[in-house]
Design a protein around this nucleic acid. Structure first.
Lengths: 198, 198, 198, 198
DNA sequence: TGAGTTAGAATGGCACCACCCGTC
DNA sequence: GACGGGTGGTGCCATTCTAACTCA
């Protein structure tokens, strides 16, 4: 399965999402590849710090590495426009668009999706970095997408400090010493299942 | 005064910072201009929603608008590299580099600053979106910059839901209905004073 | 001050000792340099993970870096013989020989020291990785050195899990989240004072 | 049977492992030889202290002694690189790689093994000096090897003071006066059986 | 609009248990 | 064989901060 993760704004957890999906797929024991297309090499620098159960390669080295992988997760280079989005979507089985629930990020996402509505490919929005206390904004964001018939994952990702610790240590959140590491990993695990079962 | 706001990573509050500094300077009754250089035009979309006490213009329309303004706040287009940073810094009186306190953002900022250490211009780091509960990370982030002699504003900006509401309403945080709107605005007010007094 | 750390056996905390002494001296605000002579680059890889308050350089790059440093801590390349030991000792103000309290390590250390007894330079043994429960072996090890008039630091270093966590995180033990981090750091702090006052 | 014990880091119990395997094989009543390749001659100094049921010889005297032995245990000289590892592995029936469960040692071991993955010879990792209290790290270390399909002995060796006493007395752990001597010896006995049955 | 209450999350402290060492 | 001491790990509770809800 080839999954592409893209966003129109920074700081929405794009790299974290790509990284943890790669971790999820690697648990199937099938060879998994994480492609880092980000110009500041977030994923690769993450890989430098810890020992990972999947391959990580630069976007330019994709051809060689892709042959050996059953699952490929692509962390796109930052911020495609509407035209590039179509190209991305056609080049994968599933396009994931993570976004936070704040007005600026939602604006950027909705207006871009509107421009490619006729997009034939599979894509779905993922709400990330949700503050559990802001029940209102969270529900509003979800309803915004549902009211426009934009596909959105049932599973969303909360903002937990375990994710920060994981980024710092260069490991997946399930391998970090944190009280809530289990809960945190469970959110990506459920997301993985949702992708797998779809 | 010409103030430029730039960052190497998204989601660190660059637009929010530029917007509120424009608001702060506009309170001097002197003509103030907010320049939106962001490709997704965040500031302009913010301005679309509310009635503002300062002018907002696209980066391409800057020549005309700048003549009438005493204070100009520039929300740069996303993510300059080290070379562009120098150009930006020389073109203003003060360069503000907002950053969150998480590992990835700090890494990106420190390594870029190191590349322009000899930078003659005035610049200063601003810690944003701080979670008051994470006292450890917050202190560590501040000390990271101080230990490297990188200038950093004494004032930092907390993550408060009032800022989200402000973005949604298209107004400054001081004009939003929220119990903590006063506190939130006070953080940018104190930042403004720190800039003014420096 | 130039301090060299050497040992005749692995796993006795040589790198940990060099690292924490560098940290200690860097707190004096005087420029400090940690030289990594270990072929597997333990110190340098440690430095890769965290942001350090002192310079780290390869043994081959020492000439340039040493000029700017007030304090230099040298983590020697593994396992000098008696002849090399003399050279090392003459090239520094103090030679530190960390050792654990087990028979094999003590044997290696004592027999080597005997071969260079006439050593004019300043050197001192440091007991490391002591298990607090093994009061007998610990006392015996100390008395072994005292009975032979081999200088030994009054301060010794216990085996605490905080040191493992520090190595994993790439930071000094004082910067790690651990119940006993304070105690652990205090042992190296007291060692530092003992060195400084001597 | 010819068994070689090698490690990439000191202090992981290489000599202790070689010594006790020699003891184990000597119980078969077949002539057994322990070869000490370590430059500080740890095994020989161990042997000096006690009366042993097997022969111990220097690496340089191996030719003569090997003729008479049915089982040969080789305590290699410290720290081969990837290239030397292949030579070692081809020269024996089984290559044992003892390692502790700490991050630095695991890193060194995994990266070296990766370099000789195509190694045809029989080899297996042995976890040593495990602290029974650190259940998490111990399990994580084991899973690290299993997830990478690196062979690892089911039996591992705990850190028990009986081993220190044995080294001090120059005898095997089964011949030392210690309450847990039985348990300690049992770990190497089970390891011996695991080797024998494989 | 303002005050009180509840809930989620992060942090820090403390008690408890497991394991091992040493001693009696 | 029993006990105390030291350390590592885990779980619980109290505190703090903020968001959201309720009531006046």
């Amino acid at each position: 399965m080839i999954v592409t993760v893209a966003s129109f704004k920074g700081g929405v957890g794009k790299t974290t999402t790509a990284f943890h999906l790669a971790k999820f797929f690697s648990l199937t024991e099938e060879p998994t590849l994480l492609v880092d297309g980000d110009p500041n090499r977030s994923s690769l620098s993450w890989a430098d710090r810890g020992e990972l159960p999947f391959e990580v390669c630069d976007f330019d080295a994709i051809a060689m590495a892709a042959r050996k992988a059953e699952h490929i997760i692509i962390d796109t280079k930052s911020y495609p426009d509407a035209r590039q989005l179509e190209v991305l979507a056609k080049g994968c089985d599933l396009l994931i668009l993570p976004t936070t629930a704040d007005a600026l990020a939602l604006d950027a996402l909705v207006s871009t999706i509107k421009a490619v509505r006729q997009l034939k490919a599979d894509y779905s929005v993922l709400l990330t970095k949700l503050d559990s206390r802001e029940t209102g904004s969270n529900k509003a964001a979800r309803e915004l997408f549902e009211s426009r018939d934009i596909p959105i994952f049932k599973q969303s990702i909360r903002q937990l400090s375990a994710f920060k610790k994981a980024a710092l240590a260069g490991v997946a959140v399930c391998d970090v010493a944190d009280r809530r590491a289990g809960e945190a990993w469970n959110e990506y695990k459920l997301l993985g299942k949702e992708i797998h079962d779809a």
